[in-house]
Design a protein around this nucleic acid. Structure first.
Lengths: 259, 259
DNA sequence: CGCTCGTTTGATATATTTCAAGAATTGTGG
DNA sequence: CCACAATTCTTGAAATATATCAAACGAGCG
């Protein structure tokens, strides 16, 4: 029955948690035994809105999503962009009432896991709880880096930085490489992520392209000169804490299902 | 021996954790039994620097501290301001290597608790672990609100917002009231917290004062019109998750030591 | 094919920064 | 406790990065 694990809906969650802490078979099986329902969302659909009481933790199994808050003046700040395998709503579901909204970027599928089950699992199985805690901590670390970008870096640096971060995360998630990937995001959304205007994002993107740091075609990005881009981006990936990752679970290091 | 608890060095930590989750006597005793060393810091001294490996979790027992990151262009972004009772370095100590620096704002005292002891406690005692997790989650929620401010609100709104937040946190920590408190921070530091220039912070502060929303004398702030200030600040304290707080521990609700 | 949404571009406006210098406050050594 | 040094605060004038407004262009889609 372990064979079926790699196609299990919750397999990406196991994979994700294993990147933070080694999980033994029992732990992994426990994750896979979590109750859940699947649901498809269309692009732009809300998974949860600020102010709602969270009932589920949401595992993104395909597509992209983002988290955001709205300001009273109508401005929107995007705080995170999520891809397949991300547990999109751990914060809201643990804190109870949502302090930000989660919305689909593209169409996609999610697995909804009742928060009681998630919490029980986290506290029954310390390694799992620890991995989940880690996940939320890394999340916080990324927020801090974004704050630094938005608060103290100019437009060109900010945008390059996001491009670098996304490249690395896409590669880590197996959805692209560090030199080519698809950014499923409009320039308006990009603007809301970096705290700029769509117009200015457009100009900056074109400048980056003119300077041959990147190439673009539709939403596809090529990073033609990683070193130079990372340089102008002031990009130092320590904040992603990728070094802490375990490439393999502690036991059964050679089990192919998680390779 | 419970009498002595309120003067115990780690008592503020118990108090803090109890605000997030009810802790029974055994849990509270376990916290107080944590090994620690005390240390005094002078103003501006670093508690930990970005890139260091964290050895201790740091409980601030007096004074103020802040967390920050530096950008390659020399810019600094302050990500959090901490007061007595805050556990200043839970993130760094759980993630291992520090992705940001922690520095004293004023002179003050801290208790340094070896991270192994903190982690053991968190996983031996689920309620404590949960409270600590909560603490880091609320931390993240505050980051998100700051991101929104820095990315999408103008100078006046940003600064008012910080003033409101600080007022509420100071009151919660018993260090001031919602209408009067001491902000132990220079305008330059304030600028680095809100992503502006010291000059502009100064002008904005004066404008706020001219409009009779606040009064200032040295570092002391009076909020003369909370409603109006909160209005211009776009301040909605949900993100502080204060509603989740337990005012009393579950057992012994009348035990004076935690009142 | 026409519509809608996203991108691109230009011209103009403005919030915020930068630079600079004087006033006030705080810290410090004698 | 004073006097000098060092920050911190304040204010003005000029510069600039980014926003705003507006319009044309292109691509995907029913």
């Amino acid at each position: 029955m372990l064979e079926s694990n790699e196609t299990h809906t919750l397999a990406p969650m196991v994979r994700k948690l294993c990147t933070w802490r080694p999980l033994d078979i029992a732990d992994r099986q426990a994750v896979l035994s979590l109750p859940f329902i699947t649901r498809s969302f269309s692009a732009h659909q809300h998974i949860i809105r600020e102010g709602d009481r969270a009932k589920y933790s949401t595992l993104l199994t395909s597509g992209f999503a983002f988290r955001h808050k709205m300001a009273g003046n109508g401005g929107r700040q995007i705080m995170a962009i999520h891809m397949r395998g991300d547990i999109v709503d751990l914060q809201n579901s643990l804190l109870g009432i949502a302090d930000h909204s989660v919305q689909m970027l593209t169409a996609g599928d999610v697995a909804l896991i009742p928060i009681e089950a998630v919490q029980k699992l986290a506290f029954d199985r310390p390694q799992i709880g620890r991995a989940m805690w880690y996940e939320t901590l890394v999340d916080g670390s990324i927020f801090r880096e974004w704050m630094l970008s938005i608060g103290r870096r100019d437009a060109r640096t900010r945008i390059s930085h996001l491009l670098c971060e996304f490249a690395l995360r896409m590669e880590t998630a197996g959805l692209g490489t560090t030199c080519e990937y698809e950014m499923p995001i409009t320039q308006e959304q990009l603007a809301d992520a970096v705290g700029l205007t769509p117009v200015h994002v457009n100009r900056t993107l074109k400048a980056l392209e003119a300077d041959r740091l990147i190439k673009r075609d539709k939403r596809r990005i090529w990073i033609t000169d990683w070193k130079k881009l990372a340089g102008t981006a002031d990009f130092h990936p320590r904040y992603l804490h990728l070094n802490a990752r375990q490439t393999m679970p502690a036991t059964e290091a050679h089990n192919p299902e998680l390779a």
